[in-house]
């Protein structure tokens, strides 16, 4: 039983927190700009590499550098929006999604060109876990990741619930026509959406790199689980994205627990398929997701 908590539940929570942060950006873009942004994974990767570069320059802890990364990444993402997404504000979703494919390839090749394909680590060496009650093993970095993620999610909640711009974002997600009629500055709301999404993507990228390592494909590798988290939670529902992320992360790790007999329930080779299967199931039976998001 303690193995279950140590090796399946806790890693699932850590992974889930990372998915959740990524999914917040996906779900906001999906809800407000109305397209699935395939470049979101590469934005997370870029966040990790920016932090890594600053660590080389300053030698500071990645979590201290995270706010700086968020600012830089937000500026980059707003630039991308102006260059590659703004021309398509009134185009069909298919066109914008294909544009985001193109952007994904471009960011990835720039990352590979600038930083090379070599694997990097934030902090070399390994961290032994703290042992509680003689059995419960939790690594300090996992505590840090989960707590930081929770704090960031609270910030997102506060922005959406209590600031003018946050309320405008929610209004636009619920009904763009109505929002426009009531005089909301849509371009401003779109900017705010990108900034919030970019900040959460930076955090997701940095936490993922902090937990494992930095590689040029890391963002793309968690893109589909992130989409799955956004859909499972309900599109345009940041709280849903958080819940969806945790659900997907925990389920992925639990799928290979020995629920029946000795062997893993699902061959670990298929672990990557778990999130897709959940997502497809939700799309079919409850397309609005757990939190009753929008269905387009």
């Amino acid at each position: 039983m303690i193995d279950f908590i140590n090796f399946h539940l806790i890693p699932g929570l850590v992974l889930g927190s990372i998915y959740a942060l990524g999914a917040i950006g996906v779900t906001l873009t999906f809800g407000i700009l109305r397209f699935a942004n395939f470049a979101h994974g590469e934005i997370m990767t870029l966040g990790a590499y920016l932090t890594l570069t600053m660590m080389w320059l300053t030698g500071w802890h990645p979590l201290i550098l995270l706010p700086v990364t968020m600012v830089i990444l937000s500026l980059i993402v707003i630039g991308m929006d102006q260059a590659f997404f703004k021309p398509f504000r009134n185009s069909p979703a298919v066109t914008v999604v294909i544009a985001s494919f193109g952007l994904m390839l471009m960011i990835r090749s720039v990352t590979q060109f600038s930083w090379g394909a070599q694997l990097q680590a934030f902090v070399p060496g390994i961290q032994r876990p703290n042992v509680f009650f003689d059995a419960l093993r939790i690594s300090p970095k996992h505590i840090l990741i989960v707590i930081s993620a929770m704090v960031l999610m609270l910030v997102v909640h506060w922005v959406l619930a209590h600031t003018r711009i946050g309320k405008a974002m929610r209004a636009m997600s619920d009904s763009p026509e109505l929002a426009r009629l009531t005089g909301i500055n849509t371009e401003l709301v779109i900017k705010a959406t990108w900034i919030l999404g970019a900040c959460m993507a930076a955090a997701a990228g940095v936490f993922l790199a902090y937990d494992s390592h930095v590689s040029t494909m890391m963002g793309f590798q968690i893109l589909l689980p992130t989409f799955a988290a956004a859909i499972v939670g309900g599109i345009g529902r940041p709280y849903g994205a958080m819940a969806g992320g945790l659900l997907i992360g925990v389920t992925e790790e639990l799928s290979s627990y020995a629920w029946l007999g000795d062997g893993p329930l699902l061959e670990p080779g298929y672990k990557a398929g778990v999130s897709f299967a959940i997502m497809i199931g939700v799309l079919i039976w409850r397309p609005s997701g757990l939190f009753r998001g929008r269905v387009f």
Binding site: F30, L224, P287
Partner: peptide, 23 residues
């Protein structure tokens, strides 16, 4: 299964199915 889905949902679902097939 997926025909009722709107454009980008269909894209994500089919991308996921392709990955499962490859696995």
């Amino acid at each position: 299964i997926c025909m009722r889905l709107r454009a980008d949902y269909l894209a994500i679902a089919t991308l996921g199915i392709a990955e499962i097939l490859r696995l």
